[in-house]
Design a protein around this nucleic acid. Structure first.
Lengths: 347, 347
DNA sequence: CGATTAAGGGAAAACCTTTTCCCAGCTAAG
DNA sequence: CTTAGCTGGGAAAAGGTTTTCCCTTAATCG
């Protein structure tokens, strides 16, 4: 048994402010002030203490600081997006905005499980997070947790907020406009729209933007084809669009990149060239999909990282005590042009 | 200015042990003991204190506990896998293993940036994480941070460990065996292997397993085709396999799901039926890809969530002071059978 | 009835840092 | 020489909890 001891690594005791003070021959109070640029002392004393701290490798214990300041420099990110398709770009933006302020992020995946949600929220609250950001995989659904009346500020990003909360979402309608207007500018005349289930809030909102833009350009709007978010539906939609006797579209704006992928593949199978015969634009700009289509897919990017940054910075200012008006802030999307949408048709 | 005040929400002061003690008419010491099932007191006193705590909604301040116990009940997960394709399943397993122990996870994406890595590691160390799990998007690469000589235990998962560290990785060779043996069992006789760049450690290791299994079954091994991890390479590989005059394969084992997808699509374009003419198996079991292929893709799953669980539990026991032998632990993969591999050929 | 012992509960230290006050010593003004 | 004022630095409280030790009271034993 005793011989096992050598196998368990022993970690050195962290050096405390006390150690620094003792080594420098001053009180902890003075040491603290020296390191924080506070209080009065000779420049020489201050530098001596600093040098001592450096040489000892002193790092202040964040827990002690937090306890005193009632601020832990941590925030929680709550999500139910297991695959992280939306959460991770968001997380990346949040982290980016916060890391320089010394704030770390707890990532909590609550799936669809209220018990798990409760568990995570309580754990975070106990750890005195400074705030919570809630996000999800669907913009029109609540997380399976109640975040009202928490003791900390809460910000919603890319998910349905409680009333009177602060929320950041992408401007879906604006994103759709970007795509359809791009087609118009390129000279496409018969632009179709293939999207997901009507039960998703983004679907009607993008569809409306689609209709609006076409009307503004005096072009005919076709009835949006609503189905599922899958490639398979993209295939089927192409069949519906091109099998009938009706006039064929020369462009398809898709509700996500997987549908777009299905559309592109189906078009090719029919001998229709993308983008020459039919232009295609997707939504989400999921690079792994968008770059694998042939040709590479033009797609609307929701700027999730930027959205995360905004959310992070806003939370930070909220934590700092600055008030912020409740409400929903829509952040613009961005069209990432690759090859599937084609070039101007006449030139 | 003053009228703005109503806009900033005021959060109620958390209730402390002191409050509970005062309300119950005992000292904080007694209150603490009552809530932690320690010390001696009448059952009646204990229950009264507990009831008071409940009614006040008391939750112990984790920071204070951590300070005292020198244990923060947090761990850090370090990754450079921006898209979270590998990190997130892992994270999910880790979180799963730890949440019941009240441990929360800091997720830190360090990209490929040593400065960012340093920043995150220092932030975590300052926050007195109990341990760190390092992971990445590639099993044979280091993160851009130095994790040796940290003051906390470190565990590597799905990434290259420092020597003498504890690491969990998936058993790639075993996974490859699973796939190839499955083909053999199904009666396939000419099994090809299409994989990624030789510079990835997993590539030769899976290729060797491929050769071994074929030899064990007395079947001919073809030279593995190495290229990139993309669909496009899957396409090209099919051209190479089926254009020459050589005998055509009746099965293709692919190094990842994207290659497999490319292979399946290319086979269909040539009029070859999957799985009847050619069976296909992928690697990674990335559901979003595996379920979108036609037919759905049979694939090797690396069990990353389970790997995460193991890593989490091991870290926990390490934090608890139990020694663990350094070294690399390989966890078995699992074959997820869908339709692309076909049924037994003769019956 | 006196002496032990056990039971119930409290005081205080400890964890580590920050911050507010205060004190001693010195200089300059009156 | 006295007094006010400044300077450099320290003591102590605060933040919230846990834990060790101690004290008081009641019960048991001889």
């Amino acid at each position: 048994m005793a011989s096992d001891d050598q196998a368990v690594p022993v970690f050195p005791k962290p050096v405390t402010l006390r150690d620094v003070a003792a080594r420098a021959g001053v009180s902890v109070a003075t040491a603290s002030k020296a390191l924080n640029d506070q209080g009065r002392m000779t420049a020489e004393t201050r530098e001596r203490i600093r040098e001592t701290a450096r040489s000892l490798g002193f790092r202040p214990n964040s827990l002690a600081q937090s306890l005193l300041r009632r601020r832990s420099f941590t925030v929680g990110l709550l999500t139910n997006d297991t695959y992280g398709r939306f959460s991770l770009p968001l997380m990346s933006g949040i982290s980016d905005a916060l890391v320089d302020a010394g704030v770390s992020v707890f990532l909590c995946n609550v799936e669809e499980d209220p018990r798990l949600g409760q568990l995570h929220v309580e754990a975070m609250l106990d750890k005195r997070v400074d705030g919570i950001i809630a996000t999800g995989k669907r913009i029109d659904r609540h997380l399976p947790v109640d975040l009202s009346d928490l003791r900390v500020p809460v910000i919603y990003a890319f998910t349905q907020p409680d009333p009177d909360a602060i929320a950041f979402v992408s401007d879906d309608a604006g994103g759709a406009r970007l795509a359809v207007e791009h087609f118009c500018r390129l000279g496409r005349r018969r632009i179709a729209h293939v999207s997901g289930p009507a039960s998703f809030a983004v679907v009607p909102s993008r569809a409306q933007a689609y209709r609006d833009v076409l009307e503004e350009h005096g072009l005919p709007a076709m009835e949006p084809l609503l189905g599922s978010w899958s490639e398979a539906w993209g295939h089927e939609a192409v069949a519906r669009l091109f099998d009938g006797g009706a006039e064929k579209p020369d462009a398809v704006f898709c509700g996500n990149d997987q549908i777009a992928r299905g559309v592109i593949d189906a078009l090719r199978e029919r001998g229709l060239g993308v983008p020459n015969d039919v232009g295609v634009i997707g939504f989400d700009n999921w690079e792994i999909v968008a770059e694998a289509t042939r040709p590479p897919l033009t797609s609307v990017d929701m700027n999730l990282a930027a959205l995360g940054r905004e959310a992070g910075l806003t939370l930070l200012s909220l934590v700092g005590g600055k008030p912020a008006a409740p409400g929903i802030r829509k952040l613009p999307c961005r069209l990432v042009v690759r090859q599937s949408c084609g070039h101007p048709m006449d030139g």
